[in-house]
């Protein structure tokens, strides 16, 4: 017998694309991108979302992931897109999917995709780093030292070997402050998405190099937002705003 081809009709076509924003909170900040992908595919099945599938012997649900935060960092602004074979109500999908995912992977918003690619809109991220037991003055001094430089290269080990790249150029803003009770120092920063992406730990590596900045414990890192970089204010805008406008909702 010759090669088999899948019997039956072609898979149903996609009729609608949805954009989803979710948060990675608490203990689930330790989940990796791959962990999330497995959890999401199962949650979509549990929630009975009418997913569109690719053709072939090994059909895959049509999901595209964008720019996930590294393992160990929390996030309030992660994004992915799914395609469905029936027109659905985005808010109902949000509620069903949120229910089907473990607590800590929380679905915050679902909108119907408008024109343009989501990935192109994710130009920069806003990060918050909380250092327990660190004085604000210590953090402020390190920030000033790094901002005083035009360029600062760090080296990180990638799967294909070590790479050296500039950190300073990607930093749009960086500022230190203290928590209200004075128990922690907080770094807030906006970082442009470059290639390779400059991560919060790259910024920490740079701070250590320029100012001998060694916090007593690793910080709790959270991505607060990612989206278009507003040129005038140097702030990160909502990447789903354009879709919502088209939606008319």
């Amino acid at each position: 017998m010759a090669k088999r081809t899948p019997d039956g009709p072609e898979p149903d076509p996609a009729v609608q694309k949805l954009r989803v924003r979710y948060a990675k909170r608490g203990r689930l900040r330790f989940s990796s991108t791959r962990d999330f992908q497995r959890a999401l595919e199962r949650a979509l099945r549990r929630a009975d979302v009418p997913m569109a599938f690719s053709a072939g012997f090994h059909p895959h649900p049509k999901i595209s992931y964008a720019n996930a935060a590294p393992t160990g960092t929390a996030s309030e602004a992660e994004y992915f897109e799914i395609s469905v074979t029936d027109r659905v109500d985005p808010e109902r999908v949000r509620a069903a999917l949120d229910e089907a995912l473990p607590r800590g992977l929380d679905v915050l918003e679902v909108v119907e995709a408008g024109t343009g690619a989501l990935a192109d809109r994710l130009e920069a991220s806003q990060w918050e780093l909380v250092f327990t037991g660190l004085s604000v003055s210590r953090a402020e001094a390190a920030v000033a030292a790094l901002l005083a430089q035009d360029r600062h290269e760090v080296t990180r080990l990638f799967k294909k070997g070590p790479r050296t790249f500039d950190v300073r150029g990607a930093i749009v803003s960086l500022a230190a402050s203290g928590s209200e009770d004075g128990s922690c120092a907080i770094l807030q920063m906006v970082v442009r998405h470059t290639t390779p992406a400059v991560r919060p730990d790259d910024v920490l590596t740079a701070l250590r190099a320029v100012a001998d900045f060694v916090p007593p414990a690793p910080p709790l890192v959270t991505r607060l937002a990612q989206g278009p970089l507003h040129p005038a204010t140097a702030r990160v805008a909502d990447p789903l705003a354009a879709d919502r406008d088209v939606d008319g909702s």
Binding site: R45, R46, D48, V49, P50, D86, R87, V88, D89, A96
Partner: peptide, 12 residues
């Protein structure tokens, strides 16, 4: 069965 799509999610 699960996987056959849920009418409750559909657009009204």
């Amino acid at each position: 069965v699960v996987g056959s799509g849920q009418p409750a999610l559909l657009e009204r």
